[in-house]
Design a protein around this nucleic acid. Structure first.
Lengths: 129, 129
DNA sequence: TCTATATAATTCATATATGAAGCAAGTTCG
DNA sequence: CGAACTTGCTTCATATATGAATTATATAGA
């Protein structure tokens, strides 16, 4: 059981290390990825859902992403309570650079697991979740 | 790759939920477990090594564990710089109670993974780490 | 022995995460 | 319509984590 926890943490750490030179953390990269994939500004509540976390966490994350110039809060004309997060050009650039690094980690990991049946591993891990 | 990260987080969360009724977090349980297993007070540097984290983290963790009455800082007569962490009776009691809950989670997880070859999974996950 | 260096712990700034409490703005219903 | 409820975000307290800077103590070497 602790193997699963440790393996998860080890992969997280590898990703953090790969993203650090790009100026991103795994959390920031994840948020940018969701925003880029969505193709439009998402409300902070939607962001919280995508990131599987509480909204107050997103408030703080957006503060940091905005301070980094990677995202901008924009008002929602449809709902004056809502605030949407829009990726800036710099944010999109960093996300793309991060994605390249993530792909490298993925390739390295695939090599490490070359002796393993990928489908079986996937099935097992999905069952846990 | 993200399956591994997600699976790890899912297991962590299950453990947190199982330990919460006992009044422990996974971090606190882990620290108590190391101390109980050691059978003697460990210096805070040794604690950091066991927990695979930096020492400043242990300083804070010990503050919380001491506030909970689960651990006590004791001076080291051999080295006046060092401070050792000693488990209190209450700490030992909680650790034992936590271990029972952890065992239950382990059993439930084994059931979930009943269709998987445990040795193969173990091998794959160990390779990642 | 005295100095330089290394080690032990703490403090501080910061990142990430949760959850409770609060305020503003929609929505529903009598 | 207006009160009650819900939703969206922020703020605050707290837990966990890192790393740089600081203080105290040990130890090695000239």
């Amino acid at each position: 059981m602790f193997s699963i926890v440790n393996a998860g943490r080890a992969v997280e750490q590898r990703l953090e290390e790969a993203l650090a030179p790009v100026g991103l953390t795994l959390t920031k990269f994840g948020m940018l990825l969701h925003l880029v994939e969505a193709g439009e500004p998402l409300s902070l509540s939607e962001c919280a859902q995508k990131m599987s976390c509480v909204r107050s966490n997103i408030t703080q994350l957006m503060d940091r992403l905005e301070a980094d110039g990677l995202v901008q809060r924009v008002e929602d004309p449809q709902d004056r309570r809502a605030i949407r997060a829009a990726v800036t050009p710099l944010g999109a650039e960093r996300q793309a650079a991060g994605a390249k690094e993530v792909t490298k980690v993925q390739a390295a990991l695939a090599k490490t697991l070359s002796g393993t049946d990928p489908a079986a591993l996937q099935t097992a891990l999905s069952a846990v979740k």
